[in-house]
């Protein structure tokens, strides 16, 4: 779930905007400059992935995948998510342009944390990779939901009801997200393990 325009007080809107710019600058510095175009292309892949609906009982949820972005991109994840959100307000729904900073923090910080945790904990076997990936994928969603709650809380006590509802809505997403992330990591471990290394510098496979 995203925060829409006009929910947060103006001070928080501006503050999160500045904070997300700072983190984005850090993220750019952490990315080798010849890798930036590649991160951009991966951003579009994540963006498309986040449009996919997963059926859940009578309704469906769409994936947020902050954990997965972090697992694959490491520190570049924040930049990727900021650009992804910008694309979202360019292309599809939502204005969301004034809440961009808040949304980028909400999704981007968990992604960076997830990437760090995954590279520390992933271990060597496929099973361990998948389980750690799944837990981190779910954890990323949980962290995003907590930041959302925190931001909504700054909007005042009137928004507590909305905050509770938003947290509740994240619970099923949490389960789905963990499972899907676990399966994706397991698949990538078998098919293309170097993607899980969070490095872009690897030379392309020579396919002549």
């Amino acid at each position: 779930m995203h925060i829409s325009d006009g929910v947060l007080p103006i001070s928080v809107t501006l503050g999160t905007g500045v904070a997300s710019l700072a983190v984005a600058a850090w993220s750019v510095r952490k990315t080798a400059s010849e890798d930036l175009p590649k991160v951009a292309v991966m951003t579009s892949a994540f963006f498309v992935a986040s449009l996919i609906n997963v059926p859940l009982g009578p309704t469906s949820v769409h994936l947020l995948i902050p954990g997965l972005v972090g697992i694959l991109l490491g520190p570049s994840a924040f930049l990727a998510i900021l650009i992804g959100l910008l694309l979202q307000s360019l292309l599809f729904q939502f204005g969301g342009i004034t809440a961009l900073g808040a949304n980028a923090l909400m999704m981007g910080l968990p992604a960076v944390v997830c990437g760090l945790l995954f590279s520390k904990l992933r271990g060597k076997t496929r099973k361990r990779n998948a389980i750690v990936g799944g837990l981190i994928g779910g954890g990323g969603t949980l962290l995003a939901a907590s930041i959302l709650a925190l931001l909504l809380a700054t909007a005042g006590e009137d928004f507590l009801g909305v905050m509770k509802l938003a947290l509740l809505a994240h619970l099923p997403v949490f389960v789905v997200e963990s499972l899907v992330t676990g399966f994706t990591v397991s698949f990538l471990f078998r098919v293309k393990p170097e993607l899980l290394e969070q490095r872009f510098g690897t030379p392309p496979p020579t396919d002549h």
Partner: peptide, 23 residues
């Protein structure tokens, strides 16, 4: 969910390979 996970994995593998070709 398993199939979805594989689907996403495949999408990422393809896009990752494409990043190199694009660059």
């Amino acid at each position: 969910l398993r199939v979805m996970g594989n689907f996403l994995g495949m999408l990422f593998v393809r896009s990752f390979e494409r990043t190199h070709r694009v660059y």
